[in-house]
Computed example of a mutant assay.
Amino acid sequence: MFSNEGTDAKKARGIGEAIGLDGYSQEVRDEVAAVRKIVSDLHAELPKWELVVWTAGNVSQRLTSADLLVIKPSGVTYDELSPEKMVVCDLDGNLVDGDRLPSSDTAAHAYVYRNMPHVYGVVHTHSTYATAWAARAEPIPCVLTMMADEFGGDIPVGPFALIGDDSIGQGIVDTLRESRSRAVLMRNHGPFTIGKDAKDAVKAAVMVEEVARTVHISRQLGEPTRIAQKDIDSLYARYQNVYGQ
């Protein structure tokens, strides 16, 4: 089963034919089935929280049993998604299993997984307020305790990069390596978030839009007050290590 896109078009996009999962163990195939459902279900959270329009945005999760990821297929609307339509790629972004083309952001997700081994979930949206900050190439300042809790400081801006190869992934990794934040605003593009799994990354995507909106509104009233670094550190440590335990 393959997409209707012709072989020449696939080659132009650097996409090979799916090799399937027959060569993988039953453990891997079982995890693929489970993660396909997880990723499919989590995509419903993006329109629910008004983070995407039409077919924009994507969620992926990396497997624990093999160097594979599951991601949304390209150009499929959210109400058409199902576990069976999720596609499986290797960590170089090559299609392994699925009858549709993977998201155009797959190379970015794959690069993050290759270079940040603690990350098992990646989300990309074009949520309105976070993307507006990205269009200004301006970090979101840490002026809310919610930001200190969740992101450990400012939400940084990553470099401008074109879709088509792993340049966006490189920008994500280079930016987040120097930050406690689980979100980055890629300049003129939009937010990418990372997490311990896809659900964690979706949570970060929801939170980054909320703080982007709140800080924007605050700035309409005047200059918001930054939180002192020692207080940010204290809030972050408590939320990450004590809260909910």
Rank of each mutant, 00 (worst) to 15 (best):
G152A: 08
A107V: 03
A108I: 11
L63Y: 05
S179P: 02
T64N: 15
Q26E: 15
A107E: 07
S179N: 12
P139C: 05
H43M: 15
A56L: 13
A9E: 12
D99Q: 08
K72S: 08
K10H: 14
M207Y: 14
T225P: 01
W54P: 00
D200L: 06
Y239H: 14
L144A: 11
V208G: 07
K10E: 13
D41H: 06
R226V: 03
P47H: 03
G23L: 10
T7Y: 12
A148R: 02
S234D: 11
E178M: 07
A212T: 10
L46G: 09
Y113P: 06
A204R: 00
Q220V: 07
Y78W: 14
E80A: 15
V96I: 15
D79A: 02
T175N: 05
R36Y: 01
Q240D: 11
T175P: 05
N115W: 00
S179F: 02
V87N: 01
R238C: 09
S60R: 11
L81K: 02
Q61D: 05
V112C: 07
I232K: 07
L176T: 10
V88Y: 02
D99A: 10
K203T: 09
E84Q: 04
I232H: 07
P102A: 11
I227A: 09
V119M: 04
V242P: 04
Y129M: 15
D41I: 09
Q170F: 03
I168S: 02
K85Q: 07
E209R: 02
T128L: 10
M86P: 01
E150H: 08
V87M: 05
P117V: 03
D79K: 04
L162Q: 14
V184G: 03
N115A: 04
D154N: 14
V211F: 12
R219Q: 15
R226M: 02
D200Q: 01
I217H: 07
